[in-house]
Design a binder for these strands. Structure first.
Length: 501
RNA sequence: GGUGCUGUGGCCGAGUGGCUAGGCUGAGCUCUGCAAAAGCUCCUACAGCGGUUCGAAUCCGCUCAGCACCUCCA
């Protein structure tokens, strides 16, 4: 029996708003698409939260035994800076400002993005396609929508007619909007506008002579519209209908709504079975965003070099901090919360080290309530993770498990009280949840061989001093090391260990 | 104005109608030569007002407060 059969996964589907049992289209296989970053600037922590959410989802689904194809795109063209009238996209604008080639900008920020992902131990997707690598497919789908009469050409640009689409099937099913209301709100079309109606959106934009990112098309030189790349790439690599589409909450409308419309119109079927949206990271109750100027760059967070931070915090502290809340809730960012997370994370991780160091022998022959309790904690991890990837409740179980690990470590709880199979289930689950599913890594790098050797010398000196009841010396060794940032810990049986802070 | 969401103890933050979430902080105890680490215990809350129910933080209504989206944004 596969793990995904023992612990069936439920997901909150943004389409419909209900929690549903997750059943992939093809049993045992999962296709997942997540909207990736626009690489015209540094990623900030809000972006990181979204990618972390889907990192956890893909890790857990794989852990359960699904074969997951995870596609996350790089948007290196196409998102307009202000509105369609400006005819200039973000990448091109930045490039002009910096006097760089557009692809140079893209390369620079893509590398930076990957570096940040590595720092947070967010695993790479299976496929990371780029918009510029799929221009032909985007032109093809434009043709298809033109042929179907749902798109129209206007002065070298192609627009999607939302009203025409809406006559065939309802527009707005994801965000709960109807086009009449949309027509009443927002900015009105001006005289130069090429769109027939303001709710229409661009599939292909004509490039002005000064526009430096341009490709030839049947309608003249231009570049792809805002939403079409995701439809093209998800269809190409996952099929016309696939299992999971994810992204930040702020993409729900209009981006994902438009994706549904385009794909449904082009392929005659809904593209996605489960929509998952991760919520926003906030600072003092307000959404973290570039435009509000309250965003943190990962580098600022690590160094503490930011007006809102009292000091720096490590990537794993932040990872833990983010996983303490559910992805569908907003999460508020503060110094106090990060400090609490730092301590909590250290506790969990020290228990992991203690568990790995545990010499577990002499197990019980017959099962006991204690052992069964440990084994059921392992099941609780899976139950919580399978319940809409609830990392917050899973962490609560892991804290409970860490206390039991410390009991084993201290000898309060003895392996002779539990069977080997109960212990193995307990221990394996703790390790796999921590490392494989939640993706935690050691905080400080292992000390050099020289440091370890020197610490061995100091520890043996201190042991000698203690044996001689020369507490003045033994305390000095401990206190001086403490002020040098190394904490000595005395074990129950006279052993000593140390931890760099 | 439209659409949706939230309001939980000192702080952060889970909560599928009935059993202690959890973390951090604080207090106490155990262990320890003394500490640290660790274990145990305590501080036990659900914005307000009504309603449904044997029973509601959880469902319904109203009020208040806040947030997000409706324009590029994870």
């Amino acid at each position: 029996m596969k793990l995904f059969e023992r612990f069936p996964v439920t997901v909150s589907n943004s389409l419909g708003g209900q929690k549903e049992t997750f059943k992939p289209l093809i049993e045992g296989f999962v296709g997942m698409y997540v909207c990736g970053p626009t690489v015209y600037n540094h990623v900030h922590l809000g972006n990181v939260r979204t990618f972390l959410t889907f990192d956890i989802i893909s890790r857990y689904l794989r852990h359960l035994g699904f074969k997951v194809r995870y596609v996350r795109n790089i948007t290196d063209v196409g998102h307009l800076e202000n509105d369609a009238d400006d005819g200039e996209d973000k990448i091109a604008k930045k490039a002009k400002l910096e006097r760089l080639e557009p692809m140079e900008v893209v390369k620079n920020y893509t590398e930076g993005f990957h570096e940040v992902m590595r720092q947070f131990n967010i695993l790479p997707p299976s496929i990371e396609p780029t918009a510029t690598g799929h221009i032909l497919e985007q032109i093809e789908i434009c043709k298809k929508l033109l042929d179907a009469g749902i798109a129209y050409e206007s002065n070298g640009s192609i627009y999607f007619s939302v009203r025409t689409y809406n006559q065939l099937q309802p527009y707005g099913i994801l965000s709960g909007r109807n086009i009449e209301e949309l027509m009443e709100s927002g900015r009105d079309l001006d005289a130069q506008d090429e769109k027939r109606e303001k709710i229409d959106f661009a599939l292909w934009k004509k490039a002005s002579p000064s526009h430096i990112m341009r490709w030839n098309s049947p309608w003249g030189p231009g570049f792809p519209g805002w939403h079409i790349e995701c439809t093209v790439m998800s269809t190409k690599y996952l099929g016309e209908t696939f299992d999971i589409h994810g992204g930040g909450m702020d993409l729900k409308f209009p981006h994902h709504e438009c994706e549904i419309a385009q794909a449904s119109a082009a392929n005659g079927k809904p593209p996605v079975r489960y929509w998952i949206h991760s919520n926003m990271l906030t600072v003092n109750g307000q959404k973290m965003s570039k435009s509000l100027g309250n965003s943190f760059l990962p580098a600022e967070l690590f160094s503490g070099n930011h007006p809102l931070l009292s000091r720096g915090f490590s990537p794993m502290t932040v990872r833990f901090f983010m996983l303490q809340s559910h992805y569908s809730s907003t999460l508020d960012f503060s110094n106090e919360a990060l400090q609490a997370a730092e301590k909590g994370y250290r506790r969990l991780f020290n228990a992991l080290l203690a568990l790995k160091a545990l010499k577990a022998t002499g197990f019980a022959e017959t099962s006991s309530a204690t052992g069964a309790g440990l084994a059921s904690l392992a099941d609780d991890c899976y139950k919580n993770m399978s319940d809409d990837f609830n990392t917050a409740t899973t962490l609560a179980v892991l804290f409970e498990m860490s206390s039991r690990i410390n009991d084993l470590h201290a000898g309060v709880l003895k392996t002779s009280e539990i069977t080997e199979s109960d212990f193995k289930k307990f221990a394996d689950t703790y390790i796999m949840m921590m490392e494989d599913v939640l993706g935690f890594l050691p905080e400080q790098q292992e000390g050099s061989a020289h440091l370890k050797g020197a610490m061995d010398v100091l520890i043996s000196l201190r042991k000698k001093a203690k044996a001689d009841r020369n507490f003045q010396l033994s305390d000095k060794i401990r206190d001086d090391l403490k002020s040098a940032g190394i904490q000595l810990k005395d074990g129950k049986d006279g052993t000593m260990s140390w931890e760099a802070e």
